[in-house]
């Protein structure tokens, strides 16, 4: 079956165990939300999948093939299949929007207009520099750049953080369209519980580097796991550390 699988992934950064024996999978056409407090290793998980960070232990499998992060050339194919949208827009300041979009593969220029219309981006911004755009527009351009590569799996690192409600809804619609209309597998790392309820097929809750809870949004709503309760209430029980 076509799926992105993470098996027993472990990573220590400095003296902290960021990921500990983490296993999860995303099928094509599925939306998996990974929730967790800041600094629990959600971004590290995404960067490990595409080989930007090397795991200490564990494996990543894509469509039944194991990835080899130590071989930079082998990761080129993996990165073509897995598009990552960073938390920050990560646009190149010295290039215009259009140059940013076609950088690395000029063939992408053919699909720019259609994808811009999908994201409701005006074509006039193509000649702007990133610094001339608002943060919301920069995030949308960043998403557009990843979509132009037409990946099989899309990894989102907090895609709606810092966006206004209208843009948040637009980004959520795009994520849903990617999964349901274009059959991409979407792994979304987020704090945004409302988006998770709205979009997710499954939710995974990370706590202290491990998967604490995995299930449907309904399972999450009913769970009495302290961190899940804290997420729902938006408050922290300091006695329990959540």
């Amino acid at each position: 079956m076509n799926m992105l699988e993470v098996k027993n992934l472990s990573k220590v950064l400095g003296e902290r165990q960021v990921l500990e024996n983490m296993s999860l999978s995303v099928q094509q056409g599925e939306i998996l939300f990974v929730l967790g407090r800041s600094g629990v290793g959600k971004s590290v998980l995404l960067k490990t999948i595409v080989g930007l960070i090397h795991q200490d232990k564990g494996e990543v499998w894509i469509d039944g093939e194991k990835t080899h992060p130590e071989r930079e050339l082998a990761m080129v194919a993996v990165r073509r299949q897995c598009g990552l949208v960073f938390q920050s827009p990560a646009l190149f300041d010295s290039m215009t929007v259009k140059e940013n979009l076609i950088f690395g593969d000029e063939d992408k220029a053919r699909h720019i207009s259609a994808t811009m219309a999908w994201l409701k981006l005006p074509e006039k911004i193509l000649n702007f520099y990133p610094s001339e755009l608002s943060f919301g527009f920069q995030k949308k351009v960043s998403l557009l750049r990843t979509l132009l590569s037409n990946p099989k799996y899309l990894l989102f690192d907090e895609p709606t953080t810092g966006l206004d409600p209208v843009t948040t809804n637009l980004v959520n619609d795009v994520i849903r369209d990617c999964a349901k209309a274009r059959n991409m597998g979407c792994l979304v790392v987020s704090h945004d519980l409302q988006s998770a309820y709205h979009l997710a097929d499954r939710i995974v809750l990370i706590d202290q580097g491990k998967i604490a809870l995995s299930g449907t949004p309904s399972n999450f709503k009913e769970s009495d796991y302290p961190l899940a309760v804290a997420f729902r209430k938006g408050t922290i029980n300091f006695a329990e550390g959540y």
Binding site: V50, L84, F86, Q87, S88, G104, D105
Partner: peptide, 16 residues
């Protein structure tokens, strides 16, 4: 600045 704003990671993702 490119490093802290993840532009270098993006370069790697684009296989540049």
């Amino acid at each position: 600045f490119m490093k802290v704003t993840e532009q270098l990671d993006q370069l790697k993702l684009l296989s540049v």
